[in-house]
Design a protein around this nucleic acid. Structure first.
Lengths: 205, 205
DNA sequence: GTCTATAGACGGATAGAC
DNA sequence: GTCTATCCGTCTATAGAC
């Protein structure tokens, strides 16, 4: 019964512009602190026009968050039991750090959602996330069994990787304030530090 | 000219109740996402009565944040050059972890403020915080010079301590979701993991 | 000190012209 | 598809009775 409603180029472009603007605003003020007006202004659209593309403020937020966890976990999925243990883990750390450098707004959006109790994604956290982490934790334990890395609590190992890498996106302001004017890009230093940290943590004694 | 206006017991109690309620709300929703109504309801007061004690929403927020950074840094101030290097640092890690366990709301309030660009405390970050960290970084470098700990980037060492310990407060929901029902208190595990991590990072090779 | 009532601004969302 | 105008609910904050 429905006519074909092809998504025009202008529609796609506007939706993308809106989502980018919304990422700006939501990642900095959280869901409740953001206003549709701010998003519309950032996107260069009128408020009613924005609401023509996304019927409600919540729709925009959900569109951003949906799939973000998935993207966020891609580097972890890439960790293979067949590889060399330490390089596999260090590569994971590095990819996560690159994501913090290249997608800091996504990281902050996620942080905001978790800090506020993850009302929208808690089921995914205890579902898909937990399964994936349990699976990869098994690999860590296996490697420890084989004596190829030091034995560590695998879940807390992952917590520490997430925490340390995302810190450089989420707490960017503080990092730059503490390092001062002399350092205009903290990431090279961070990469060296984190590589050292996890190498010392995981090298068998 | 002014009469003495003694702060009555009931005033003190109400102010404390309000600040506690505000900490609940602000730490979970951020400044913009919080409403005075929610704070008043949590405190068990009417909105106008709450505004009798604090004239504006901002006043409450500032009262909470003011001094929080100071309290947060007390454990770092306690780090003494005269002590044994590794135990001094591990004691700092432990105190920070205890603060995350005992004052998670304060940690989240702080995290919210930083993520949102630290509009209220950026000057303190690049002032008092930076000075203190620079001073303590010198101690770390000194210890490394003397061969008593491994050489590490001292600023990033502090970043990693903050990041790892505060993670257990700020990302509590995620930590619990990943660990599952079997673990009802992540902190004992966290303490063991972090002690191991920093011991391996800092023990001279 | 605490309340009810309400002012006045701003929020999300809609109507309807073009 | 995009706009102006506007509805209506909620927000911060105040007035004024008790």
């Amino acid at each position: 019964m429905n006519e074909a409603r092809p998504v025009t180029r202008i529609q796609q472009k506007n939706r993308a512009t809106i989502l980018d603007a919304a990422l700006d605003v939501f990642s900095q003020r959280g869901f409740g602190g953001a206003t549709v007006d701010q998003i519309a202004a950032t996107a260069g659209l009128s408020k009613p026009n924005l609401l023509y593309y996304f019927p409600t403020k919540e729709t925009i937020y959900e569109a951003l968050l949906g799939g973000l966890l998935d993207t966020w976990l891609d580097p972890l999925r890439a960790m293979r039991p067949s590889g060399e243990p330490l390089p596999e883990i260090l590569a994971y750390v590095q990819r996560k750090l690159e994501m913090s450098r290249d997608f800091p707004r996504e990281s902050r959006l996620f942080a905001n959602e978790i800090i506020q109790g993850a009302p929208l994604i808690e089921s995914e956290l205890s579902g898909a996330l937990r399964s994936l982490v349990d699976e990869k934790a098994e690999i860590i334990n296996q490697w420890a069994d084989e004596g190829r890395i030091a034995r560590v609590n695998p879940h807390h190992l992952f917590f520490s990787i997430w925490s340390l890498t995302q810190h450089y996106a989420d707490f960017d302001v503080q990092v730059r304030a503490v390092l001062g004017e002399g350092v205009d890009d903290p990431f090279p230093e961070a990469e060296i530090y984190l590589t050292t940290l996890f190498t010392r943590m995981l090298t068998p004694s």
